[in-house]
Structures are given as structure tokens and as C-alpha cells.
Simulated scan of single mutants.
Amino acid sequence: MITSSQTLNWLTLYLTHHQHVQAKLHEEIDRIVGQNRDPSLFDKPKMPYTEAVIQEILRITSLAPLGLMHELLHDIEFHGYLLPKGLLLIPNMYHVHNDKKIWGDPGNFRPERFLNEDESRVIQKFASFS
């Protein structure tokens, strides 16, 4: 529950400072959901801008900056280093979410980075660390 409430707190802060995003988000919600019913999961595929705003909030705030620990199940070699089975890895999500090679302008709140060119659907951002 902490993650959800913190996400909403950050969302409120960013929408206050980026009123053009707030207006665009409000327009999409009114157009798809309207004012006479509650939103449902069936609305999600029709609301790409809303999803992009949520993804951008999660990226820019890095609520879980170190992610979850993972244990290696096998020995692996990575960039010339031998990583033994059983090693605990802690991902640095803050670094990934602020990497200029991936995001270009990571310090800017820009939900459109998660949308295709005509903003009609959400795109996934993948990065190669090889």
C-alpha cells in the first residue's frame, strides 16, 4: 500500500507542476470513462496516455531504487567477470531510470516517451546492457 500511496503523491506533485500533462490526462479520462461511471480495467487498453503518465511517474521517482534481490541459479560470465551460483544481485533501478543512453533526458517529466509517434498506444522501452 505504501507504493500505491507514494505513487499517487508523486503523481499529484508532477501534475501540479506540469499542467499541460494534467489537462491531457483529464481529457483522456473524460473521453473514455466519462463522468457517470467508475473506471474499469476494460478501459485500460483505450487509455494509452494515462498508462504512459503512470509509467513515467514510476520511472522518474524510482520508488524502489534498488529493486528486489535476485540469486543466481548458475555460474555466469558477465563482461569478463565470473559471477558464481548463489550470488545475490541487487539491481540499481535508480541508475537505469536515470541513464541518458536509455532515456535521453531522464530529468524531464515526459510521459510521451512511452508512446508511439501518434500517441495511440504504449510502447515498451528495452535497453541492452551488453
Rank of each mutant, 00 (worst) to 15 (best):
46 K>P: 00
12 T>K: 00
9 N>R: 10
112 E>I: 03
115 L>I: 05
130 S>C: 02
108 N>R: 12
22 Q>G: 01
32 I>F: 00
14 Y>S: 03
70 H>D: 08
67 G>K: 06
32 I>K: 01
117 E>G: 04
6 Q>S: 12
11 L>K: 00
90 I>H: 01
9 N>K: 02
113 R>F: 06
49 Y>S: 04
37 R>V: 03
7 T>A: 15
119 E>I: 01
28 E>I: 04
10 W>C: 09
20 H>M: 02
25 L>D: 07
111 P>I: 09
77 E>S: 11
86 G>F: 09
8 L>S: 13
14 Y>Q: 10
96 V>S: 05
91 P>L: 11
22 Q>W: 09
115 L>H: 05
110 R>K: 13
68 L>S: 11
114 F>S: 04
117 E>I: 10
67 G>V: 08
115 L>T: 06
121 R>H: 15
84 P>A: 10
74 H>L: 12
66 L>A: 12
89 L>M: 11
58 L>S: 01
6 Q>V: 08
85 K>R: 14
128 S>R: 04
101 K>W: 00
61 T>Y: 01
130 S>N: 06
18 H>F: 15
55 Q>N: 14
99 D>Y: 11
120 S>V: 04
28 E>S: 07
61 T>I: 01
91 P>K: 05
73 L>N: 11
117 E>D: 15
71 E>W: 07
5 S>Y: 06
69 M>L: 09
23 A>K: 14
66 L>Y: 14
53 V>F: 08
54 I>K: 00
42 F>D: 13
128 S>C: 08
50 T>V: 13
98 N>Y: 15
12 T>N: 05
48 P>E: 08
87 L>T: 15
80 G>N: 11
113 R>A: 07
5 S>P: 00
31 R>M: 09
72 L>H: 07
30 D>T: 09
79 H>D: 11
125 K>W: 07
121 R>L: 05
14 Y>T: 00
